[in-house]
Design a protein around this nucleic acid. Sequence first.
DNA 1: CATTTATTCAAACGACTGTTTGAAACAGCC
DNA 2: GGCTGTTTCAAACAGTCGTTTGAATAAATG
Lengths: 219, 219
Amino acid sequence: MAKTDTKTKILDAAERLFAQKGFDAVSLRNIIEAAKVNLAAVHYHFGSKQTLLHAVVSRRLRPVNEERLAMLAEARAKAGKRKLKLEMVLESLFVPVFRAQASHKSGGSFTRLIGRVVFDRNTELQKFMVSELAQVIIQFSRAFDEALPGLNKTEMDWRSHFMAGAMAHTLCNADLLASFTGTDAGAEGCEATVQRLVEFTAAGFRAKVSTPPRKQKSS
Amino acid sequence: MAKTDTKTKILDAAERLFAQKGFDAVSLRNIIEAAKVNLAAVHYHFGSKQTLLHAVVSRRLRPVNEERLAMLAEARAKAGKRKLKLEMVLESLFVPVFRAQASHKSGGSFTRLIGRVVFDRNTELQKFMVSELAQVIIQFSRAFDEALPGLNKTEMDWRSHFMAGAMAHTLCNADLLASFTGTDAGAEGCEATVQRLVEFTAAGFRAKVSTPPRKQKSS
DNA sequence: CATTTATTCAAACGACTGTTTGAAACAGCC
DNA sequence: GGCTGTTTCAAACAGTCGTTTGAATAAATG
């Protein structure tokens, strides 16, 4: 393993650059220059720039999603017949993706990439992301329903939406916080960040509903 | 006013396209085709693509920010010597930008653009946005401090960060909610959406702080 | 009116884009 | 050795990009 695989070199460089500047703003020539490989190698190994992006995302996101589902299953097992704890569901969703930042030597670029991808308006990419996240979305929306019985569906959808926004923004723009407020995002471990995010979103989920549901069927 | 101003035609087309596909993904030729003007007109009136983007953003954001500050001032006046109400601060921040969507004939494109801009990693654009938002940031972070006395600064910064993420995501990806959950974002007026967002973020701001502040000076 | 100023237009600029090609270098195996 | 399939490489492809140019037109001013 002295000489790193070309495929890996491309993935690493692409991951870093996509996260830094975004998908459109990075050219294949930027990538192959950073990876010190030939231009054609990209198409030989990945077929196209779009497919390369898919590979970059998938490489990191797949294990994260597996861990998410595993943590959720564990939370379910621990709850037993009792009601699922909202905080544990949120932690199962946040911890794997935030931990991937610290653990992997990717230097924090990966989480920024994931956060960015959520907000990128690339039709192809969005279809791909939906397919990658399908299981996670299904399982977790069920878990939220279990953890918050009585909350009507519309309200649940919106609050999940808000929660996703807070998560994505935190992943994507951790440095913005530093520049705006002076608070250093990386000063404390990602556990502390996750803890703060869990508290914030859990409280949001549990907020008293004041909006009168005009036409609502479910409870 | 039978023949619309060329400058306005460009701004309108650019706003719609930028919001739909993003800054990098839209070419000047896409814009001038939609606006039915000559290519050189863009550089004649705006100087560059980057400056055009600034103009597009500024045209809508400036009145929004003025209204934000006005609403905040009114909330302060109404509070008198009493403590500023958190919900009113949040409403002052949300209502103008969400209402701009419904009121303006831009067809909802503007809010998506603003939401997108927050997440775009364009150095030039970020500097511009910081300068445009400077007053709003200063005034509102002061207001949050007044509405939530006792919350330490670090926690306040993080929660503002989460709140901004929820807001931006809602502005930018209202249609995502529909595709994922089936809940139609536009079904109810923007007032209802703002109301939900206020409830969610207000609860998040008020959440009990469990994270022990390791090294903290302020209260 | 003429003359200046502001605006529009078609055409081209050089640089950069993702992708393809076909030959060279390399590996492993008989 | 020769032969097979895989991987690398330089070069070129056909476009698109933001921007510039200089002449043609419209509007405004004297």
